[in-house]
Amino acid sequence: MDVVIIDGLSYALPLLCIAIGGIYSERSGVTNLALEGLLGAGAFIGALFVAFFGGYFPTGSLPLMFIAMACAMVGGALYAMLHGLLCVKFRANQVISGVVINILAMAITVFLTRQINSTLFKSSDKIQLGVSPRFDVPWLSKIPIIGAVFKSVYPFEVIIVAVVAIMWYILYRTRFGMRLRACGDNPHAVDSAGLSVQRTRFAAVMISGALTGLGGISFAYSISANFSSSIYTGAGYLAIAALIFGNWKIIPTVGACLLFGLARSGGYRLANVLALPSSFSDLIMILPYVLTLLVLIFFSGTNRAPRALGEIYDKGKR
């Protein structure tokens, strides 16, 4: 049981971080299918920092990891500017832009990883990061059952929880958050209040990139332990499903991500307990996806996307 919770949380929290990135962008009215690409681009910049400056830090040092995370956030935000530029300034179709950003991110990061590795480090096609150290929260982890939440926690999980709380506060309790949400539902109202729809949307897309980058580097530091093309496992798309399932609201999305994470780790555990051959674990891998589809069939009738989602803002339009 403990294993299910520990593994479930370490998958669900980065996913949640990415999904909240998606919520920021979509609540401002910019469809964001680019999460997968932003995740990779952010993680790549973080990994690049480790590749160049990792030597100056002792192995497994926490400061290095935190700086890498900051780099990933900056990298994600910078790469997201491209999506913002295409969608907000260049009036591109937002769905197409998202797909293009994904394809380009995969191409560029994989190409650069290989090229940099082969010319500078004479090594393989991945940047080694190692697995982040874990810790137990002193006395909370002793509580039966619930204690598992505080057992062998990755440092990034704590950071993500804090970030999510801050992001919730910004979106629902600040003036900026209100304007951002208004941009997604009624951009003309924002415009008539004398604010720039374009600027707010651009900021939202950049925040989205930063959060997604953080989620990406967390995956790189836990599941894959390196940066390579294996980072693109579709977590970005799963995050999109989670946020739609969560009806573009943060609290329900937390539930959706936890469901995905726990269904995944629970499935693995089940295969383990029943001592099934490894090929059966592939069948169990479909659990989160089947769950999503079923849940969507029952709940999507009441789902309501932001009203102006996917529309290019045009001042003259009524």
């Binding site: 491209l82 260049f90 179709n93 832009s97 293009v100 394809i103 191409a107 560029i108 994989v110």
Partner: peptide, 17 residues
């Protein structure tokens, strides 16, 4: 090659602009 294809797409996404 994938980078070139990606760039072509990027520019064609700007077609409307």
């Amino acid at each position: 090659a994938a980078v070139i294809t990606g760039l072509i797409l990027l520019f064609s996404a700007c077609g409307a602009y």
